[in-house]
């Protein structure tokens, strides 16, 4: 009886052991649709570009087409007072006219009203002070196919600032689109990188096309809200792929009754004319 019991337990265990040897990562899919239609607003106010706002409806999946939002009012407020109307350039985009002057000392926000009466506003933004390069040295083909740009600039304000350097390439005065995001979270320069009140560094950039003949190096100062938004996109994207992440951080939004960002920036530029590859030993200083 005892040996029968021993044999029974051990046999059952061995059977379970054999059956469990198949290892698989089981995956079930549940269809869940929590879609809520939201008005998405992505806009900037900047010196020297003025105001540009993109308005569309959120999608429920990858397959939907974006839907235009019918707006009855699109206003820019200055210091909490209605100031100018923004006019439509395509079905989703609204801009300010070119002869409007913006100031670093005023605060601006956008106000939208849909035909259904929904009022959407943004947080008020101040355009950061305009930063300037002290030194920019452009060395084409410093590393085989990479160009090197050395820069120096000073902090524009005692308040916390966020900087960004962008290299724009032109072919015969037409901006060449590199298909990269306009602003990328990884390249934001925080004021903690400052040494002796000065920022300096090196950027390496390839030519996106062999016909590129002009380079513009821009130095941006970004508003805090814009930086929070860019950072939150990267955090959210990062944690989406982490199976054991404890939290998912939603994208930052400063839009009321909607979603998105109304940010501010200011920038100044240095231009360089690019010569063909044979002159790669030349340095350009500006």
């Amino acid at each position: 009886m005892k040996s029968n019991f021993n044999a029974t337990i051990i046999s059952c265990f061995l059977a379970i052991l054999m059956l469990s040897c198949e290892v698989e990562l089981s995956h079930t899919v549940k269809n869940v649709n929590l879609y809520e239609e939201k008005v998405l607003v992505h806009g900037f106010i900047s010196i020297p570009e003025g105001v540009k706002v993109n308005v569309q409806k959120s999608l429920s999946s990858y397959h939907d087409q974006s839907k235009r939002v019918q707006l009855s009012e699109v206003l820019l407020y200055k210091n909490n007072e209605p100031w100018i109307n923004l006019f439509m350039v395509d079905s989703c985009t609204y801009v300010s006219t070119q002869n409007v002057n913006f100031s670093h000392t005023d605060s601006y926000k956008i106000y939208l009203k849909t035909v259904d009466g929904l009022e959407i506003t943004s947080e008020a933004q101040n355009i950061p002070p305009l930063p300037h390069f002290d030194t920019v040295v452009f060395t084409p083909y410093a590393y085989d196919y990479l160009n090197e740009i050395y820069y120096e600039f000073k902090d524009v304000d005692d308040e916390k600032q966020y900087y960004y350097i962008k290299v724009v390439q032109y072919i015969d005065s037409i901006e060449f689109n590199d298909n990269l995001p306009f602003f990328s979270c990884e390249n934001i320069i925080y004021d903690t990188k400052k040494q002796n009140d000065k920022f300096s560094g090196i950027i390496k950039v390839p030519y996106y096309d062999s016909k590129v003949n002009r380079i513009e190096v821009r130095l941006y100062a970004l508003s805090g809200s814009l930086v929070k938004f860019l950072t939150s996109i990267r955090e959210n994207e990062y944690l989406q792929d982490e199976a054991y992440a404890e939290n998912v951080y939603p994208i930052y939004s400063n839009i009321t009754n909607g979603f998105g960002i109304f940010g501010a920036y200011a920038y100044s530029s240095k231009f360089f004319t690019v010569k063909p590859r044979n002159s790669k030993k030349d340095n350009f200083k500006n």
């Binding site: 929590l34 879609y35 809520e36 569309q56 429920s60 990858y62 939290n247 951080y249 939603p250 994208i251």
Partner: peptide, 26 residues
Amino acid sequence: FSLPVGRFEGNSYFEPYWIYASINNY
């Protein structure tokens, strides 16, 4: 668990992203 309630398809300035109404809504 955090489940998105919509999606932004992206534009020339920003990459696409999921929109969450709130954290841990599911």
